[in-house]
Nucleic acid binder design. Structure first.
Lengths: 209, 209
DNA sequence: GTGAAACTCACCCAAATGTGTGATTGACAG
DNA sequence: CTGTCAATCACACATTTGGGTGAGTTTCAC
């Protein structure tokens, strides 16, 4: 069987060299190249066409988050595994949105890292346990009501989000036009916005509904 | 160490009984109860207070998707692992939104299942490889442009989503008020909507931006 | 160089929206 | 009983929006 080919981006020289050494001396893996930054990730990817990229996040120059994007744009087939100390939510989700295929914390032992590389090649998405948990949690909308919207206001907001006009909302909820607008005004106040568009945006991005 | 306590919901009698047998004869696991449907999942959870629930999706009566919700509502601490044949996207994301802590396909060998139970107890989120992949993929917005919005239209849409008025968009993009509105009209046409609110809703729910 | 897009701008009009102010009703807690 | 709050409705006014129509420029592929 042909070995899995890798490219590494990691600014910590000792760590990077260790990984290269370990991987190259393990059956089934072959490191094509390794870099201490990912400024040219795009070119590098097109050049080496690796099966898998291991990418640190915190690197000088372009950070690993940009890096994922560059690799994925250059060659979507290449799987990118983030390998980092960061358990930070923002960075995590930015990486995922940029197309990362896996996310391992650096405390992961090398053995597990090798397994992860194989797993990602089989179409899996290796993640450290706590990361996977964060990812699944992100699906749980709810917490909805920090803005103390009343039930009726939530009804109205729900219809607003569907793109209903004040008139349509009134009809749908069997209330008068002015009442619907009244609710809308109260909603805008509570959400600290000045128009329906902002309200929709806020409601959807903060999962208020 | 006290064993991990489980409750099983699985309508296939043979499979359920096998799992109960296997788990009860494995160090560290204890099945408190097992059921062929999850109509009373709420009560059952409150009664047994299991560490982990294994839940099938396709069961007579209330399906497992409702089941997750019932368990989680009754006792958020209880971890719920879906154990099912379905690789269906809709069902998957419905389960995750309902609060599932893991998602294993039935082709998972029992050994891995046991590992998964332990993993979920340690705060992980065990998922079959293909499932994890689907989950990460769901974060990749982009594919954005099935609606063939031009770059400029995407700019405008981005500002619209922030709640900007036509006037503000014009100022932000250094174009005239009418041009901004012109772009908006074109966007509405391409998205098949009739107002900014619908456009925002569509853009956000379909990850067009 | 010709045509197709994308981008720009302008004008018109009816309808919807945001904002303010004020009022009535019922439910529910203290 | 009284005050608070949700929910209902009304009127007024300036602004914004959605829709239509038309037109000039640039860029780029064929």
């Amino acid at each position: 069987m042909t070995p899995i080919s890798l490219v590494l981006f990691e600014d910590n020289d000792r760590l990077r060299e260790s990984l290269v050494y370990l991987l190259n001396n393990t059956e089934g893996f072959r490191v094509l190249a390794d870099y201490r930054h990912c400024n040219d990730a795009s070119l590098i990817t097109r050049l080496h066409k690796p099966d898998v990229v291991l990418m640190d996040i915190d690197m000088p120059g372009e950070g690993g988050i940009k890096g994922v994007g560059m690799v994925k744009e250059a060659r979507p087939l290449t799987a990118v595994i983030m390998y980092t100390v960061f358990e930070d939510d923002d960075k995590l989700f930015q990486c995922l949105c940029a197309g990362a295929n896996g996310y391992l914390l650096k405390k992961t032992p090398p053995g597990k890292l090798f397994e992860a590389v194989q797993e990602v090649m089989q179409g899996g998405a290796p993640m450290s346990g706590s990361i996977a948990r964060k990812v699944l949690n992100s699906f749980q909308q709810g917490k909805s009501n920090q803005y103390h919207l009343t039930p009726r206001e939530l009804d109205v907001l729900q219809h607003l989000i569907k793109g209903y006009s004040s008139k349509m909302i009134a009809a749908a909820l069997h209330i008068s036009f002015d009442t619907a607008r009244s609710h809308l005004k109260n909603i805008y106040n509570k959400l600290h916005v000045n128009c329906g568009k902002e309200a929709i945006s806020k409601a959807l991005t903060e999962h208020i509904i």
